[in-house]
């Protein structure tokens, strides 16, 4: 076993419980949904109206016809795609690994640099694997699952399906990596005041960004460019560029992190 192998092993050991919990939660929620679908007589038309209203509101917020969801005239109970539920693992992974594997690796005698590169490799692998899971699930979901129940998948929410299956896969991977590197930044050095400021800024940014009208347009534009980008290259580029910034920040934290 080499050092990277040790890091993988340690990461799995530290994540084992979280992975089991997430998978358990997905299983429970799927079963619960089936039970509810069977037990409740929903009102498909009212549900459909609500969705249409929500889409309208979102479009108003964004200022243009950005969201291209055709609200159907009637829907049954809509569930989030099981493959999307798995994405809960993204923040979980990027919180647990920096918090729980740094000391273990350094205690074994690892250097901060090698540890950090290993961490990035794990994140890259996780982003690719989760993107692959969802991309493979997507045709199955459309062809088989939707025969029985209504589901919703990120791929169509953000309109990535327009880029073909490969395009959707790449866009997802870039976005997932972005999420991982953001959370990783926030949990890379909890003992530093810089981290606390970062947290404060981020928490403050959400109400400020959405409540001030002039800012709101820019915030919406930013999310459109990040998530709903019509160009695969521009969308991936933006995600990866921001990831690079977060990674640089996380390295500054890790480089001088104490045990």
């Amino acid at each position: 076993m080499n050092k990277m192998g040790v890091q993988m092993r340690v990461s799995v050991l530290r994540m084992r419980l979280a992975i089991l919990l997430v998978i358990g939660a997905i299983a429970v929620s799927t079963i619960a949904n089936y039970t509810i679908n069977a037990a409740l007589q929903g009102d498909p038309q009212r549900d459909a109206q609500e969705v249409a209203a929500a889409v309208g509101e979102l479009n108003e917020l964004a200022g243009k016809d950005a969201i291209k969801i055709e609200a159907p005239s009637e829907i049954e109970n809509i569930n989030i795609s099981s493959a999307n539920l798995l994405l809960i693992l993204l923040p979980v992974l990027a919180i647990i690994l920096p918090l729980r594997t740094f000391r273990t690796m350094l205690n074994f005698g690892d250097s901060r640099g090698r540890y950090f590169i290993g961490l990035l490799l794990i994140y890259a692998a996780a982003a690719l694997v989760l993107a692959l899971c969802n991309s493979l699930w997507w045709p199955f979901e459309q062809g088989v699952i939707r025969e029985h129940s209504q589901t919703i998948n990120l791929i169509e929410v953000f309109g990535w399906d327009r880029m073909g299956i490969i395009g959707a896969f790449l866009y997802q991977a870039a976005f997932y990596f972005f999420v991982l590197s953001l959370f990783n930044l926030l949990f890379s050095r909890m003992k530093s005041p810089v981290t606390w400021i970062l947290w404060a800024v981020l928490i403050a940014a959400i109400p400020i960004g959405t409540s001030i009208a002039s800012l709101r347009v820019h915030v919406a534009d930013f999310f459109l460019a990040l998530l709903f980008n019509d160009s695969l290259l521009a969308g991936m580029g933006l995600n990866l560029a921001l990831s690079a910034v977060f990674i640089a920040g996380a390295w500054l934290f890790t480089r001088h992190r104490t045990i």
């Binding site: 076993m1 080499n2 050092k3 192998g5 040790v6 092993r9 340690v10 050991l13 074994f108 005698g109 690892d110």
Partner: peptide, 13 residues
Amino acid sequence: ARVRDVLQMASAF
């Protein structure tokens, strides 16, 4: 981790 795994992991360093 098991004792033998910890030893094996340490050996890498």
